[in-house]
Amino acid sequence: MKRGLLVLLLGLAVGVAAHTVYFRLHLPPNSDSIDAQLVWMKRELQLSDGQFARIRELHEASSPRLRALASQVAQMQAEFAAFENTRRATDRVDFIEFARFVEARRSISRQCLDSTRQLVRAAANEMTPVQRERYLGIVSPAEPTTSDVTN
């Protein structure tokens, strides 16, 4: 009885060890950085090293502008929240101020849309037709949101 039990425990130990080692070795790296996203894109679209290098340059070049725009959008959100609070508290609307806010918001949204489209177009130009089709399929959710907000 002891020998059978020993084999049973050995089997369980080997199974658990094989599971743990394989899982640790193949665990995908958990990172949310731009590098991780570009490496993921390279794998998904099967980009060559040359394509990957050019696309990385494009993203790195546009990154500061996109970040600046994102911070402007966040600032506009904060302004809108303050405007809304004031309206609720005083029950009055400063229409001139509101019109100025809407115009500024539209202008920023337009700039965001242009920047995104410019980057997508430049990255897509570096790809083969098959890669481009797949890439545009991935980024297409971004387009309607941008255009909706702009209109």
Binding site: P28, N30, D32, I34, A36, Q37, W40, M41, E44, H59, S62, S63, L66, R67, L69, A70, Q72, V73, A74, M76, Q77, F80, F101, V102, R105, S109, C112, L113, S115, T116, L119, V120, I138, V139, P141, A142, T145, T146, V149
Partner: peptide, 27 residues
């Protein structure tokens, strides 16, 4: 799961309006 997460992160990276998604109800 990670691919889906990276796809969402990439969209946020290239679209500043998605980065600030909660602002969808602003004019």
């Amino acid at each position: 799961e990670q691919s889906a997460q990276l796809a969402r992160s990439y969209l946020q990276l290239i679209d500043p309006l998605l980065t600030a998604a909660p602002a969808a109800d602003t004019p």
